Amino acid sequence: MNQPLTSEAPTISTWYIDPDAEDAMADGHAPIWRHLIGLVPEKDLSRAAVLDFGCNQGGFLRHLHALRPFHKALGVDIARQSVDKANALKGNLPIQYQTDTKLAGWDGEFDIAFSHEVIYLVEDIAGHAADMMRVLKSGGVYYAVTGCHTDNPLWPAWRKLVAERTNTVVQDRSVTDYARIFAEAGFQVSARKLEFDGFVPYAPGGWTPDYATALDYYTQTKIVFRLVKS
């Protein structure tokens, strides 16, 4: 049975029903991660504690450390096999991975946090916002990226595909819904379009109906929220 992603959600085995899709997802996200890291104004993370919420196989934190080395990091995900692989791949990096998305015991721990295409799966988004407020230090920043929102013209088709291909339950929220909920939790909310400036591979049979739509999605539809704990 599909399970919602919440701070109290049980774990699942894999995100995708087809476990081979996990590796493909990480490969596809890598250029987006690098672009996101380039957008973040926090350049020196050498003393920073970093959180990746919805870390999957840990690829984002490995990319981040290669580009902007951090002091320590935690990645959390409800998918057990993904967390196992993340731990196997981390080598000697100062990263811990776990399936406990409640983040108990991490109050006031993190300087900066990230999530990439995760918040649209969080059933209790207000609870998630409160959790992120709790675990960030004063002045800490949470970058939450998503193109899966009801302002995306592809969303009616995508929500059906997500339900068919993954072990998760999707949620219907607009960009304004996210801004309002995080503001109500106490965050200073700002946002921008991701405006990916790299080359988008031609991948027929993917999530977009044609190549022009794929180009528009990565440049115009994906949103980066910058959420500051004041």
Rank of each mutant, 00 (worst) to 15 (best):
G205D: 09
Q96E: 02
F225H: 03
G198A: 05
R80K: 13
Q171A: 06
M25K: 11
D44G: 07
T219Q: 12
A26Y: 08
L61S: 01
R226T: 15
G147A: 12
T11D: 09
G58I: 04
I17H: 11
R173M: 02
A157K: 07
D27R: 08
A26D: 12
V169K: 08
G105I: 00
L227M: 05
Q171Y: 04
G91P: 04
S13L: 10
V118W: 13
W158S: 07
N92F: 12
P209A: 10
G206R: 06
V40L: 12
A73C: 11
D20G: 10
F114C: 00
P10N: 11
G91E: 04
A144M: 15
I32M: 15
Q3A: 11
N56I: 01
A88D: 05
I95A: 01
G198S: 05
G75M: 00
H128D: 05
F187D: 03
M133D: 01
A203F: 09
Y120G: 00
E195P: 03
L74F: 03
F110R: 03
D18V: 04
G206E: 14
Q3W: 05
T101L: 01
I181E: 00
G59L: 08
P10R: 01
Y211P: 14
L121P: 00
N2P: 15
R34Q: 02
G186V: 02
P204A: 01
T14H: 11
R68L: 02
G186E: 05
S82Y: 02
W155D: 00
D197P: 07
M133Y: 03
A48N: 11
Y142E: 14
Q220E: 13
L215A: 05
A214N: 08
P41C: 11
F187K: 04
A144L: 14
L51F: 07
V118H: 12
L215N: 09
G140Y: 05
C148Q: 08
T168R: 10
T6E: 06
Y211S: 04
I125Y: 06
A163M: 14
Y202C: 03
I119W: 11
S230Q: 15
L154F: 07
D20I: 08
V162N: 10
A24F: 09
M132N: 07
S7H: 12
I112R: 01
K85A: 13
N92G: 09
